[in-house]
Nucleic acid binder design. Structure first.
Lengths: 253, 253
DNA sequence: CAGTGGTCTAGACCACCGC
DNA sequence: CGGTGGTCTAGACCACTGG
């Protein structure tokens, strides 16, 4: 990572500044510290004064660096309390696309059950997206999520296999309703960010049966790629739900 | 608006600071200047040095104020050139929800034709959303947008009537393909921001006929509320398009 | 080259939190 | 109350743009 360690520091700073600004370099340093776990999720960073002194930088510069990481969603600042490392994604983020009856506040998280779990060879697209070598295995999950006993979302999940090996043999019935916190606990993997692509389709007979809908019923399809702290894609997920329960709001400027 | 004009300014500032920070108040001042047209869209603001001196504020403080407006999408800064007032929304923003063949780059804007134009009483919901008095009139438009001669989007647009009177009698055949720039030119109304709500439904017979699809064909429905610089809602729009052409990407952190 | 925004400093004081 | 982040200042120098 360190391209030029800059042996001949002319005047003041001994810090290797690649091509970026000082605060940009500082932000990168902190980003790495978070990614490597030196700053654990949920914990507080040292105060601004300490950090600025430690890195030989003015307060304002240090604050610019932190502001970058806040904008990226890695940090959270609280006036009078401190600066904290954000935990990864919660996992209930799929619900933002759907409005299921009574799902709004009371039953925050839908129940989850794993229908199938298999290990198989990664397809070309999967290997490409997950940056796996050819011939690598992936863990495939089929998962049904229900609200108040009503099945509402059907998911197909692909996970790269050396990384998620701990999930290949554990009892799926004992799994949490939320996967991402479990990824963190069991596999030490933090999902920090995801990209969802929404499109429209019709349910196949098998899909419809699981969702208790008619074959050919319209469905919304959300294809997700989820990334860890290093920006590595570590999950591919396809979620299907009743198109008539779909609702999403976006702002344009 | 000015709650306390603060007659007894104790030490330094003569500026009416409501409860906000200095830069927050500055930003509000600039926001108002833009909204009232003192800063015309597309023009450059005075330099940082001039503005900071004029408002008796340090450079850093002035920059914080500008940063707020940049984040709001009202301003745009260009290193070495200046700070500019952004023009309103372009108008082609509906296409971000759909992928029509060959619409990607070559034919940037779909052609537009106004099918019907009527003046009628605002419904209760419309009057509420547009902040109209009861009994006020609205302009209703039905509009078909086509790519390469193929009809693809059907729109139903509601506009409050004193404001858009200039559109009530002009020749619709001569209208632009993009409405928002025309709103600005003809009515002096700048659309700065919009909120889109997406859901799925089925086409009625009339809708299907216009879009050259089957009755009952699945459609994506985008309900938009568009706002001017003051945050006033000045347009209600419902857009229908083939659900199988729908595609949208969102990021979650 | 002059003028613009971008970075950086070394201070000061204020507002909030929790003990 | 001490410690935290938030605001603000009055400078300095750098990097980019355009004539």
């Amino acid at each position: 990572m360190n391209i030029s360690t800059n042996f001949l520091t002319p005047t003041v700073s001994d810090q290797p500044i690649p091509g970026q600004s000082r605060y940009g370099w500082l932000a990168a340093t902190f980003r790495a510290a978070i990614a490597q776990g030196d700053w654990a999720a949920g914990t507080a960073l040292p105060s601004e004064a300490v950090l600025s002194k430690k890195h030989g930088v003015a307060l304002g510069t240090l604050r610019q660096a932190l502001a970058l990481l806040v904008a990226e969603g890695l940090l959270e600042r609280q006036h009078g309390r401190g600066t904290f490392v954000k935990s990864g994604l919660g996992g209930a983020s799929m619900l933002r696309f759907f409005r299921f009856r009574q799902s709004d506040e009371r039953m925050g998280t839908p129940q989850s059950s794993i229908l199938t779990r298999t290990v198989q060879l990664a397809s070309a697209e999967e290997a490409d997206a997950l940056h796996l070598p050819t011939g690598a295995n992936v863990l495939k999950l089929q998962r049904l999520r229900s609200v108040q006993g009503q099945p509402c979302l059907l998911e197909h999940i692909t996970l790269p296999l050396p990384a998620f090996a701990a999930l290949a043999n554990s009892d799926t019935a004992a799994w949490d309703d939320l996967l991402y916190p479990m990824f963190q606990r069991v596999c030490g993997i933090t999902i920090q960010r995801a990209v969802d692509n929404v499109s429209f389709g019709l349910l196949t007979a098998e899909q419809a049966q699981l969702l208790k809908l008619e074959t050919g019923h319209p469905c919304a399809q959300v294809q997700r790629r989820a990334f860890d702290l290093q920006g590595q894609c570590l999950e591919l997920r396809t979620t299907l739900g009743d198109a008539f329960a779909f609702e999403y709001t976006a702002e344009v400027r």
